[in-house]
Design a protein around this nucleic acid. Sequence first.
DNA 1: CTGAAAGCGCTTACAG
DNA 2: CTGAAAGCGCTTACAG
Lengths: 361, 361
Amino acid sequence: MSGMTPTIKDVAERAGVSITTVTNVLHGRGGRFSEGTRERVLKAVEELGYRPNTIARSLVRRRSNTVGVVVEHFRGALLGNPYFSTLLDGILAEAVKAGYQLKIIALERPDLVHVRQSTEDGSIDGAILAAPLYQSPLLRWVEHCRLPHVVAGSSPPALQSACVDVDDEGSVYAAVKWLIELGHRRIAFLGGPTDYWSATQRERGYLRALFEAGITPTSHWIRRGNYSTLSGRLAMEMLLQVRPAFSSVVSCNDWMALGALEAMRRKGVLVPNDISILGFDDVEAAAVASPPLTTIRQPVREIGMTAARLLIQQIEQDTPSVEHVIFPGELIQRDSVVPYSLEPEEGSKPRPHLRRRRRRC
Amino acid sequence: MSGMTPTIKDVAERAGVSITTVTNVLHGRGGRFSEGTRERVLKAVEELGYRPNTIARSLVRRRSNTVGVVVEHFRGALLGNPYFSTLLDGILAEAVKAGYQLKIIALERPDLVHVRQSTEDGSIDGAILAAPLYQSPLLRWVEHCRLPHVVAGSSPPALQSACVDVDDEGSVYAAVKWLIELGHRRIAFLGGPTDYWSATQRERGYLRALFEAGITPTSHWIRRGNYSTLSGRLAMEMLLQVRPAFSSVVSCNDWMALGALEAMRRKGVLVPNDISILGFDDVEAAAVASPPLTTIRQPVREIGMTAARLLIQQIEQDTPSVEHVIFPGELIQRDSVVPYSLEPEEGSKPRPHLRRRRRRC
DNA sequence: CTGAAAGCGCTTACAG
DNA sequence: CTGAAAGCGCTTACAG
């Protein structure tokens, strides 16, 4: 009767008891069996090398004890992106701590049919949406979703779901304001892809700080890329040709800032003496760049942990949440930003970038 | 009779057919239903928003269609490690392509009981062990494991299981040989943690190249760290005090090399003019370091992909494999290594590092 | 073409 | 303290 893998039935037979009794001792339901029975059961379990089948248990309990992380647009190197992997790391840490397993649901096409198929199939108790794009169908899905869920790394204000994210807008706003306090008024912007919520929010923060300081933003000083180093280099090359020139540039992420650094190196533009540059994310490479990049760090791992905690709470209390947890970014001051001291006269001669000198912060 | 979520029974009732018929049309088992029946069933599915319960299906099919990735010693920031996340990325890519889901099994304590509990419970069809430590209990487990499995990022030669890894020994051997051809004979080594298979193998490659060139390795020129940047800096600081001095150093990984770079910068040692340095891994930061780090790249993503492919093959053909797939490392030449031209005389005066000059490769 | 029945491995009332 | 029975949601022979 026993197949390859022993089942509870095999244990029961071997121990000479019913399967009910086996479950009872396995779950330590005290008072439902004698000490002798307990020992016999445990012995049979041991001898047979019996492991309860989780699948069967999940079916009857209607609980899989696993949380799903859904990532959309899996084009290949998503987890190679430190943002995602760090987020996942935080989620995993909390899930493990709470006794949950983790399943990764990678959607090749993020349409409703596929999400529902892979999330509402009983295999997960709740889902964390990892950084869904701005107008992703997933964001539409969650609104009608009865499965516990939380959105991490994306936080449309109007969304009636739990969200955990960094304060993109506020962080950039604060950083640009700091730049202005440092004397910069000609501040360029290296934007990210417009279908990323984060990118548009960061750009908003930049614009708001400018407006508030009475500075009119120039569209010539705003250039967008796709968050890659290459696109940052290209965008910076364009920016470098614009006149009048700017004294500092804030980049939507570090990789683009690193590309911009390269563009400036090639052109002989000195950082931070000629141009100050500020990044976002604080990726590992930012610290070892030359000069080390001043940047805004977001608590990615903590975002993941919080998302997992919020999700598990919903699962276990069986109450949906619409809480938005927004973490502030942290300004990491390194060497790529210095105060602006000497504004060159309007209409000054060529190589304006090279005419200025500033002291370090 | 219908709970919150519709089941196959609800569909059957609504369509006025048996549940057998419902499965049949759902699985497109042609010839077992009429066109009219098919339409009614599909309509009921649509109206009810029915999704098959994967758990129930897995139970009867004895197949979960998910592959497990087991990571041991989950102390918190494992996935934050680009190696693991890239490996996972490769695994995920292949798994998704083959129609499998992915489950992450993070073991806090990698003992046999826990592994077996979480892998032999029917929830996964096979397991990939991600970079288990040198003498991990997991490596003992796999030997008696009936579940399909493959070890990725670790490859004890004697292991009777499928393995996918980079050729640690051979890659370092080749690189050190190259250094010797460049004129270096005094080559120091920044080793990794000795409980890592990779670290010991890389050290072996270093030693073998030295032996083969008739160079006797000096234990004073070998220093070990724990793969972190800090440990690399510390180890290099020690190394820098050793006399006679060396002309080049090969580091067990890039992060330690980056730390070593910092140590040298602080001491005023010029790289590569005074000392050449070679890393391993080609992490993103290696390219933006100053000078950009010459290093050995390992095809991590490909290792993950291959591991997944091997595993799925085992699962679907129901035949265990003991194949070892070993990828060669790739030497990425950047600016931290130059040929050695002038060997200082034995017993030369202080600051020997600063007395040499070399041209770039 | 269609459906009743057995069964996947477990858990949970419920009755002794 | 113990066990027979029903059931979780599906699939798979098997008989019509």
